[in-house]
Structures are given as C-alpha cells and as structure tokens.
C-alpha cells in the first residue's frame, strides 16, 4: 500500500490553509481512510489547536527529523476518528530546522501504512513552502475570492509548475454568495478566469467554521446543524478520492424580501 501525499498551500496567509487541512484530513478519515496530517509550519504551529490536540503533544516533526524519537511516537491519535493522526510542528524552532529531503524521507515512511498524508504548508514561498511541496503527489491551493489572495495563488501555481508539481487543484474558501450576487466579491468564475486550474472545492463563509476551530473540532465532523461548509469539506474529500460530486448551489435564496430589496436597489 502506498499512500498519497497531499499538500495544502496558498502563498498568502490567513486564507484558511490550516482549517482546510484539518477538515479535509478529518473528512477523509470519516470516509474510512487512514490519514495523517503534518503541520509543516515550524515555529508557528496551530494545526494541533484547530484539531484540538494541543495538550497531547510530546514529540514533534523536528524531533523525528533530528532522531530524538521514532516517527510513530510523534503521531498523535485523534480524539474522535480512530484512523486520524497528527504530526505537529515544533514551536521553538524555525523553518530551517527541516529540509525538503527530510520531508520526503518522513513522507516515504508514512506512505507505507497510511492512505493519505495531508501537509499544512506555511504562508510564503520560501523554505517552509518548499519543504511542504517537496514530497507532494497532489497540491491543493487555497484562495479567497479577493484580488490579493488570487494574485498570490497565481504565483504559487507558477512555482508549482516550475517544480513540476503540476498546476494543483483549487479550493475557494470563504465565499459569500450574497456579496457575489451583489457584485461586491469576485465570483467563482472570476477566480477561475485568472487561475485557470481545476476547481476541487468551494467553501462558503460560515460562522460554524470559526466556532468549531476554536473548540478544536473540525466542522467536517461537527456539522450537526447541516452547515453548508461542513458538507463542502466532505465533498472535497470525496473528490480527492476520485468521486464525482456535484458542486453545491451557492446562489442566495431569493425570498420575497430579497427580491424587493433588489428591486429597490436597482431603481
């Protein structure tokens, strides 16, 4: 068995890489896959917080690389999903503590027993980014429907192409359908028009994401209230698995009040 390495990256910070990583890892585990999430953001770790595993950390990625523990010892088992693990980043070191070839070695070992290795890349295009994409079989680029995030995603896609990691697949995060409808936010088509890569997910802006991140329970798992973001993440996981899942219709519901509003704002 040989697992696939999926790296989540974006260029720009704050677009939701860590949230996306945590949720996709969780959603894949919910499909019955053996998944390990790796936090490659050495020095600024927070994947452990979003997954609610912060207090269980004993060893981290740098400990593995520098031989202070075995790989297995650094793999923290998730609280809820039996086949989900996390390898946290070191908080007290920096990106230079890890090299791209270290990442390849670690991932090659993990491939033996895992179905998916999901890597959370740090922001930027420097060493940390190169560490994160070095072992990747697939790359997911997270962007927001705003000009600066799309610009950075474009840069990242260019870098991926020059590293022969393919153009990658795109996740548009934090889309607000109402704002798109009003013409105040880039639409999915606007983003794809510039980036021209395959779309693998559209995650709507949803308060439940923030709430569940703060609680340390990825929304993909908690989405009890039928949260649309929760469904969107699970759809991404199924698409990674190679299934064809239609995109959820995100056009805002046009109730009578909305239509009246539109009518007034037009006149």
């Amino acid at each position: 068995m040989s697992g696939k390495v999926v790296t989540v990256t974006s260029g720009k910070g704050g677009v939701g890489k860590t949230t996306v990583t945590a949720n996709i890892a969780t959603a894949l585990a919910m499909l019955g896959k053996k998944v390990v999430a790796i936090d490659a953001d050495i020095g600024l770790r927070n994947l452990d917080v979003v997954m609610g595993l912060e207090n269980r950390i004993v060893y981290d990625l740098v400990d593995v690389i520098e031989g202070r523990c075995r790989l297995r010892q650094a793999m923290i088992k998730d609280k809820r999903q039996p086949d989900l693990y996390l390898i946290p980043a070191a908080q007290t070191r920096d990106k230079m503590a890890v090299s791209p070839s270290d990442m390849i070695l670690v991932c090659d070992e993990l491939r033996q027993e895992m179905d998916y290795i999901i890597i959370d890349s740090p922001a930027g295009i420097e060493r940390g980014f190169r560490n994160a994409i070095a072992p990747a079989d697939h790359v997911l680029i997270v962007t927001n429907p705003e000009v600066s995030a799309v610009r950075d995603a474009d840069r990242i896609i260019g870098l991926l192409e020059s590293e022969e990691k393919g153009p990658g697949r795109l996740i548009i995060n934090r889309l607000k359908p109402e704002m798109v409808a009003r013409g105040d936010m880039l639409s999915i088509d606007d983003v794809l028009d510039i980036l021209a890569v395959e779309l693998i997910g559209v995650i709507p802006e949803d308060e439940s994401i923030l709430i569940s991140s703060n609680r340390g329970t990825p929304v993909a798992m908690s989405g009890l209230n039928g949260s649309s973001a929760s469904q969107a993440f699970r759809n991404v996981a199924q698409r990674i698995e190679g299934q064809t899942v239609p995109f959820v219709d995100l056009t805002p519901k046009t109730g009578l009040l909305n239509r009246l509003n539109n009518w007034f704002s037009k006149s």
Binding site: R151, D152, D154, R155, I157, G158, L159, E161, I194, A196
Partner: peptide, 22 residues
C-alpha cells in the same frame, strides 16, 4: 505567464497564452 514571472528578452516576444497580473 503567472504572477512573479519575469521575461527579459532582447528582441520580440510572443506569448501564446495569458499574461497574468504580477
């Protein structure tokens, strides 16, 4: 040509594709 690409050429340049912002 995606954001961050820089082409310098003494002569003419023909791009068959887009030239993105950046």
């Amino acid at each position: 040509l995606r954001s961050g690409r820089s082409i310098f050429h003494e002569g003419h340049v023909v791009v068959i594709g887009d030239v993105n912002p950046g």
